[in-house]
């Protein structure tokens, strides 16, 4: 399985440290540093999910602390839109998720990782995983 995290660079200044919190050897955990969580657009979330990836997560800053003022708030709006869209087309909206943290708050990041793991456990592999030959390579740690 594979989890992709789009991580705002303010919220997650050290993506490697976030990766080291992961610990599940059989799930590929990718952290993509982003300039702001609002860099990630809805189509990007959807297409990432369609790759297929089993869970897509966005970690941004508390909305009032966003360096771009409105960025994190917009990311929240996009997340809501994406979930609604997934519901409409009959897919599980829970496969996308978002956490907001105070920049530099390690405990919050640990909690976020735990939440991602719980979510993944409850959802299991993506139903979009139908092409085993392309998935095989990616599933390896």
């Amino acid at each position: 399985m594979e989890v992709v995290v789009f991580a705002c660079q303010q919220a997650v200044p050290d993506p490697e440290a976030l990766k080291s919190l992961w610990g599940l050897a059989d799930v590929r955990f990718r952290v993509l540093p982003e300039p702001c969580s609002s860099k990630v657009e809805a189509f990007q979330l959807l297409r990432t999910l369609a790759t297929p990836v089993d869970l897509v997560w966005v970690i941004g800053c508390e909305e009032s602390l966003c360096r771009l003022a409105e960025g994190s708030q917009r990311a929240g709006g996009r997340m809501a839109y994406t979930k609604k869209y997934l519901e409409e087309i009959g897919l599980e909206p829970a496969r996308v998720g978002r956490t907001v943290v105070t920049p530099g708050d390690q405990a919050a990041l640990r909690a976020a990782v735990a939440e991602i793991q719980d979510r993944l456990k409850s959802l299991g592999a993506s139903p979009l995983r139908q092409a085993p030959q392309s998935a095989a390579r990616r599933a390896a740690p």
Partner: peptide, 9 residues
Amino acid sequence: NAIIDWSEG
């Protein structure tokens, strides 16, 4: 550099 595009609004 990256483009941030807030199309909503």
